[in-house]
Design a protein around this nucleic acid. Structure first.
Lengths: 214, 214
DNA sequence: TTTTGTGAAACGCTTCACAGCT
DNA sequence: AGCTGTGAAGCGTTTCACAAAA
């Protein structure tokens, strides 16, 4: 088996794919690690290392063939199969994520929203994603082949909802609720903590001021 | 001036503050690095190092005094001043972020939304955040003391909107649009790339399968 | 000549282990 | 006795620098 790829690397691979899509649309044939590096403010050697994990994808003296590299990375990232995604929580955030055009554009299918509120169940998001009762998760997940769940419920119920998700056999979770969720080792959890992000900016502003004093 | 604090450290400080708030509400007086470490699945020495950047905040043999540490970290993170935040883009995501309860709870004031669409300008989000024309940013920012902008506009207009934000004198930007934004060195940009997050889960699922083959 | 792929060096973050307070 | 603060070791990531290939 291929050796372990770090999350830092896979995050960058996503960026490379997006740029390669652009280049391909423009009809660009090949691209060098230097050009990629310039685009993202990274070191060219880092990009070559990222790509070299997956074999000799480049051609010495030429660079990388855009179409080939793009295809290769799509397969590596699993973007060749249109994964089905469920969104847990049909509040403001859940509804916004369900209709977020970026997800569809990159090849994900948002197939369902789940909530507990009776008046929401049966409704649809603006773009037509249906809201189900959270009890139905297992059934809908099986029927639609859902493999990724997004957690967009209040912090207080997040851990319980994750439990339901795991019981439904889903192995990949993107969490937007604050605070640490516990998941078994075979489940991949990725958390986006909106408050932590804002507070990191707050820290920057605060240190501007205290830094200016000395 | 104090030496440079890494972003990894400041992100953890946010988590510590949240937990200290909980402890304080429960009337807990002191807390050790071991307890903090257990809560977040971190090493106790790491927590002591994080805190030691800011002076001798603990008491040997005792731990950290909850109230004092909480106050100290709030000042360090600039959470003692209720920063005013503008949200650029009154689409699904912008409106959801404007009403996101976590921001208010941690002491931020979402004071305005900005958009270019005539029919949106003058309206309000559900929780009553007013939508202004983006032309008005400079005025409103001055009046309300806005120091942080959140970018929730489509990728195509993101770079231009960031330009407007910078022209209005705002020095801290939280970006939700995909793709790299260029900002001058005195502006702090933090990006949350929703697609990259989902694709990192997709990669995990893809490697489960290819890993299972060997 | 150009540009990749890659050991070796450099760097940064985390963990270890223990001296030093209370 | 208990727990912090911290130098040193360990580890993972990035950058350097160059041999190898087209």
């Amino acid at each position: 088996m291929r050796d372990e790829i770090s999350e830092l690397t896979t995050n960058r691979l996503s960026l490379y794919v997006r740029f390669l899509n652009e280049l391909d649309e423009k009809g660009v044939r090949t691209v060098s690690s230097t050009v990629l590096a310039g685009r993202f403010g990274l070191n060219a050697a880092l990009i070559r290392k990222d790509l070299a994990h997956f074999g000799d994808l480049g051609v010495r003296g030429v660079g990388y063939v855009v179409k080939d590299l793009r295809r290769e990375l799509q397969v590596i990232l699993g973007l060749d199969r249109k994964l089905a995604v469920a969104i847990m929580g049909a509040g403001n955030l859940g509804l916004a994520l369900a209709d977020y055009p970026g997800f569809r554009r990159e090849g994900f299918r948002i197939v369902a929203l789940f909530d507990t509120l009776r008046e929401k169940v049966g409704q649809e998001s603006r773009s037509g994603v249906r809201i189900y009762d959270i009890q139905e998760l297992r059934d809908v997940a099986g029927r639609e082949g859902i493999t990724i769940a997004v957690i967009a419920v209040p912090a207080a119920s997040a851990q319980q909802v994750v439990g339901t998700v795991i019981d439904a056999g889903i192995k990949a979770v993107l969490n937007f609720s604050p605070g640490a969720l516990r998941v078994p080792p075979d489940v991949k959890l990725k958390s986006v903590d909106l408050t932590v992000s804002l507070e990191s900016l707050s820290f920057y502003l605060a240190s501007l001021e205290s830094g200016a004093r000395n």
